[in-house]
């Protein structure tokens, strides 16, 4: 507080300005691609018999796309609450290290804890990638406002995308919806590869791609958990013996 700036009377203005600057990331390439994969997600959810309101609700309260796709997959497979929750939880562990990496960038000396907890809800692959790339260009005491602009608007905008797709999808030709269904896996395939921090993650990815269909054939109910644990452990062992950095 001894370092209070002369500009502190205009702080609300300034926070709003940085919020809006964060919001302009809505028009970046990663955000555009994310929106197209939400189009794919909406098509998938629709096919699974999930209503428009439920799909919008999912987008707002879960946000992370892999978690939502896993949940829809579990619903399609007729999984119970526990099975579905466990698969989603296992697929979302990656959010923890992402938040761990982002928090030191957003934290200020006098900042309130709950703000960080609330903002962490907006952490998913795309907003995290944008934040890690640009957060250092933002003055430290404006970073929470800025990240709310990045993550909050991205979440709300994609909820709108999902709602709109539900309105127009029934009128789409089969070839168009087939093309849409391919967007989500292709987006994940490439963005997951690109966000890897060490080579072991690439090994884990390859293992998961191969083990997924195998376990789906062997044991449909537990295929995701088995692929994650077996493929992930194999990649980790590889990391311990040979790996290290990407």
């Amino acid at each position: 507080m001894s370092t209070a700036r002369p500009s502190s009377p205009n702080q609300p203005d300034s926070a709003l300005r940085w919020f809006l600057r964060g919001a302009t990331n809505l028009f970046s390439v990663p955000a555009l691609i994310l929106s197209t994969s939400f189009v794919g997600f909406a098509a998938l959810a629709m096919e699974a018999g999930i209503t428009q309101a439920q799909a919008v609700f999912m987008t707002l309260v879960i946000w992370a796309l892999p978690a939502k796709v896993v949940l829809v997959g579990a619903i399609l497979a007729g999984s119970g609450l526990f099975g579905a929750g466990f698969a989603v939880a296992l697929s979302s562990i990656r959010l923890t290290p992402m938040v761990v990496a982002l928090v030191p960038e957003l934290r200020t000396a006098g900042g309130r804890r709950w703000v960080l907890y609330a903002l962490s809800h907006f952490v998913a692959v795309t907003s995290w990638v944008i934040a890690m790339a640009h957060v250092r260009e933002v003055p430290r005491d404006m970073r929470t406002a800025w990240y709310l602009g990045v993550g909050g608007t991205l979440t709300v905008a994609n909820a709108v995308v999902v709602a709109v797709v539900y309105q127009i999808a029934p009128h789409m030709p089969a070839a168009v919806s087939a093309a849409l269904f391919m967007l989500t896996p292709m987006y994940f395939l490439t963005s997951l590869w690109g966000s890897a921090r060490e080579r072991a993650t690439h090994v884990a990815m390859a293992a998961g791609l191969l083990l997924g269909p195998f376990f789906a054939w062997l044991s449909p109910q537990f295929s995701l958990m088995l692929s994650g644990l077996v493929g992930g452990s194999a990649a980790f062992l590889w990391h311990r013996t040979r790996g290290r950095r990407a």
């Binding site: 919806s177 998961g208 992930g232």
Partner: peptide
């Protein structure tokens, strides 16, 4: 943790390609 989560999401991706929903 990252390895397990990545392998699981990769399995989801494979599923969406190998046994897709809808028109695909």
């Amino acid at each position: 943790v990252r390895c397990v989560a990545t392998a699981l999401v990769a399995a989801v991706i494979a599923g969406l390609i190998v046994s897709p929903a809808g028109a695909l």
